[in-house]
């Protein structure tokens, strides 16, 4: 518990830093005054620009972290993250498709549909009758579906007028630029519902972890439990994508890093740690993206790509040494 509290404190400190840094730097005192509602430029910056941005980063990261943790536990493989398995790029493709066709559907709905279709496709293609689902085949098929959706996205972007195509490109990189309180409200509502759903799955996940037969002996229908968990995970990832785009590698990193920071094995605290770590990663990535190079605001997705790719390589070499891959 104490470590979780420490992580929460670290996250709060990171958020405070993210609120202070930017084109108009604020001192801690100004931050306090701005937050407590004193009128002035600090209040304006916090209320209109940085507040919603940091809050959106927080929510996106938590959703991605939770989603990654659900899939990594479900498939018992640290590589089974929604971003590697093509679910987030499926959600991204759906949004670009809706943009191209000019559909006026709400973005979260479109993203959720795209994510679910991609996930169904991955499961269907990886599944072979009479065989248990091999996690590594799943990851490989997921990568393939990811390649296909990315190709389809670039195909569609050719059909968009140049300005819109540039928008779509920026968007597919993953960015937290110009998020407003509407995005934050969406994230908060979605996280409340889906977070509760995820929490309610913990017992099932723990039962599944004991093995098919034991889980069935506990009165669980393993197939249905798996589908419920996977749908929750996909919806969490789609929620994040509909606000910030498919930020790469966050869902992959959050779970294992959180577990390492936590140093404990019970599932419920590990889920909380994954959400907190995901939030820390995205807030930090966005802070780095806009505050490292003066006068230049990078998309946060570029930073998570630069951080996540070495992590993935390191992870791969470690798994190889342990003989797990």
């Amino acid at each position: 518990m104490r470590r979780l509290l420490l992580m929460l404190l670290a996250l709060l400190a990171l958020c405070a830093l993210a609120l202070m840094r930017g084109q108009l730097a604020l001192s801690p005192l100004q931050l306090w005054q701005g937050l407590s509602g004193a009128e002035g430029p600090a209040h304006l910056v916090l209320a209109v620009i940085r507040g919603p941005r940091v809050a959106a980063a927080l929510g996106t990261g938590a959703a991605l972290g939770l989603s990654g943790m659900l899939f990594q536990t479900l498939f018992r493989n640290p590589l089974a993250a929604p971003d590697l398995m093509g679910f987030t790029s499926g959600a991204g493709l759906a949004i670009v498709l809706a943009m191209t066709l000019g559909l006026g559907l709400p973005v979260p709905l479109v993203a959720a549909l795209g994510g679910l279709i991609a996930a169904a496709l991955v499961l269907l293609l990886a599944w072979k009758p009479g065989q248990a689902l091999a996690p590594l085949v799943l990851v490989l098929v997921g990568l393939g579906v990811g390649f296909l959706t990315q190709a389809a996205s670039s195909f569609l972007m050719t059909a968009l007028p140049p300005e819109q195509a540039a928008d779509a490109q920026r968007w597919l990189t993953g960015s937290l630029n110009a998020r407003n309180w509407g995005h934050v409200a969406l994230l908060a509502a979605g996280l409340a519902v889906l977070g509760l759903l995820a929490l309610s799955q913990i017992r099932r996940l723990e039962a599944l972890d004991l093995g098919e037969e034991l889980a069935a002996g506990l009165g669980l229908h393993p197939g249905r439990a798996r589908i419920a968990i996977a749908v929750t995970g996909v919806l969490l990832a789609a929620l994040a994508v509909s606000v910030a785009g498919p930020l790469p590698f966050v869902a992959l990193m959050a779970g294992p890093l959180g577990a390492r920071l936590l140093g404990r094995t019970a599932l419920a605290p590990r889920m909380a740690a994954a959400a907190l770590t995901g939030a820390m990663i995205v807030v930090a990535a966005d802070l780095l993206a806009r505050a490292t190079i003066p006068g230049l605001s990078l998309p946060a997705g570029v930073v998570t790509g630069l951080l996540g790719a070495p992590y993935l390589l390191w992870r791969l070499s470690r798994e190889m040494k342990k003989g797990e891959l």
């Binding site: 590697l84 990568l143 790469p248 590698f249 996540g308 791969l316």
Partner: peptide
């Protein structure tokens, strides 16, 4: 996966 990581980087 290593290729994916290298490409992304």
């Amino acid at each position: 996966l290593a290729g994916v990581a290298l490409n992304a980087f």
